[in-house]
C-alpha cells in the first residue's frame, strides 16, 4: 500500500532529510480513525500522519488518499516500527509513505500585528461566535459560568476546576496560574491544554510580556508539562513553546479584526471540544491583552507593575 504526502511541516521534512536512510526512526504509538501518531526514537518529537481534511499541525504529514488511509488504520498496530527507507520516504509494516512532493507548511506566524491593539470588536465577535456555536462541554462551559451566562447543563467536576482557574487567571495572570491548566480535562487533549494552546498563540503573536516569561522559563515549563499531561498534549504545547501552532489558530489570530466566520467554524471540527477550547484560550488571551492596553499598561510600551490595582 502506498500513501502520498499532501502537505508536510517543513521543519519535519528538514529533520527527516538529516536522518540516515535505512534506519528505524520511530514507533507507532496510537492509531485513530483520522490520525496515526509516531514517537521518534532519536528526538523528542511526535509525528502525525493524518487524513487530508485534518487541520495541519506542526510535525504532521497530511495524506492524499483517504480511502487507503482507512485501510491502513485497520491493520497498522501501535508499536509497529517506522523506517526511513529513502529520501522523503517512510515505511510502516507494508505501507510506504512518500512525501517527495508534499506541499510545505510552517506553523509559524507569517505576519505580525501592525500594532498591539486588540479591539473590543474582535473580542465581541469571537465571544458571540463561541456563545452561539461553541461546544459547552469543555472549558467554554466554565468560561460562560465565569461571565454569568446561562448554561445548558450543570458544570462537571473538571469544568468546576477549570472555572476556578479562569477566575484566578483573570486576577493573577501568572505563569503559576497558567500551569494549573495543564492536563485538566477528560480527553486525549485535556481542555486545559487546548485552552493554553490558544492562549499561548495569542501571547506569542502579540509579543506580550507573558510570552517573554514563558520563553524565559520554557525548560521548566516543558518538564512540568511532560510529567503532567498526555503525550499528544505535551507535544502540541511543546511545539507552541517553540513558536509553532496549528493552521486554524494561525489563520484566525493573524486575521485580527478581519476574523471570518468560516475561519472560526474550522475549529468546531477539531476534536470533540478541542477546537472550542482553543478558541476560549484565544478569547481569554485577547481579553487579557485588551485589559492591559486600555488600562494603560501597554499604550506607552511599558506594562504596569500594579496589575492587581489595574484589574480591580
Amino acid at each position: 500500500m502506498k500513501l502520498t504526502g499532501k502537505q508536510i511541516d517543513w521543519g519535519l521534512k528538514r529533520f527527516l532529510l538529516g536522518q540516515n536512510i535505512g534506519q528505524m526512526i520511530g514507533q507507532v504509538v496510537s492509531v485513530y480513525q483520522r490520525v496515526i501518531n509516531i514517537q521518534l526514537t532519536e528526538a523528542d518529537r511526535y509525528v502525525t500522519l493524518a487524513k487530508s481534511q485534518v487541520v495541519q499541525t506542526p510535525d504532521m504529514i497530511k495524506i492524499y488518499e483517504d480511502d487507503v488511509f482507512n485501510d491502513c488504520v485497520k491493520h497498522i498496530n501501535p508499536s509497529s516500527h517506522v523506517y526511513l527507507i529513502g529520501y522523503n520516504t517512510l515505511m510502516i509494516e507494508d505501507v510506504v509513505i512518500d512525501f517527495h512532493h508534499a506541499e510545505l507548511w510552517s506553523g509559524r506566524f507569517i505576519r505580525y500585528p501592525d500594532h498591539n491593539e486588540v479591539t473590543e470588536q474582535m473580542i465581541k465577535s469571537l465571544k458571540t461566535f463561541l456563545i452561539r456555536k461553541g461546544r459547552t462541554q469543555g472549558i467554554l462551559g466554565s468560561y460562560l459560568a465565569v461571565i454569568n451566562q446561562p448554561l445548558p447543563d450543570p458544570l462537571s467536576l473538571h469544568q468546576d476546576a477549570l472555572k476556578d482557574r479562569l477566575m484566578m487567571f483573570k486576577q493573577w495572570p501568572t505563569l503559576d496560574v497558567m500551569k494549573q491548566f495543564v492536563g485538566l480535562g477528560i480527553g486525549l487533549t485535556p481542555s486545559g491544554d487546548d485552552f493554553l494552546l490558544g492562549l499561548f498563540s495569542v501571547f506569542y503573536y502579540y509579543h506580550s510580556s507573558e510570552w517573554q516569561l514563558i520563553i524565559e522559563y520554557k525548560d521548566d515549563l516543558l518538564q512540568y508539562m511532560k510529567e503532567r499531561t498526555t503525550p499528544v498534549s505535551y507535544h502540541m504545547l511543546k511545539q507552541m513553546i517553540y513558536s509553532q501552532t496549528n493552521d486554524a489558530l494561525k489563520t484566525a489570530i493573524e486575521s485580527g479584526s478581519d476574523m471570518k466566520l468560516t475561519d472560526l467554524e474550522v475549529f468546531l471540527h477539531i476534536g470533540s471540544t478541542s477546537g472550542t477550547d482553543m478558541l476560549v484560550g484565544v478569547l481569554v488571551g485577547l481579553e487579557h491583552m485588551h485589559r492591559k492596553t486600555i488600562q494603560g499598561g501597554m499604550s506607552d510600551g511599558i506594562e504596569s507593575d500594579h496589575r492587581e490595582e489595574c484589574l480591580s
Binding site: H158, A161, V182, G187, L188, E227, T229, T230
Partner: peptide
C-alpha cells in the same frame, strides 16, 4: 454519589483525590 471517567493526568488525579 460521584463518578469520574477521564484520562489519568496529574491534574485529573488531583481532582479524584479531592473527592
Amino acid at each position: 454519589n460521584e463518578a469520574v471517567v477521564s484520562m489519568a493526568t496529574a491534574m485529573n488525579k488531583e481532582l479524584l483525590d479531592n473527592i
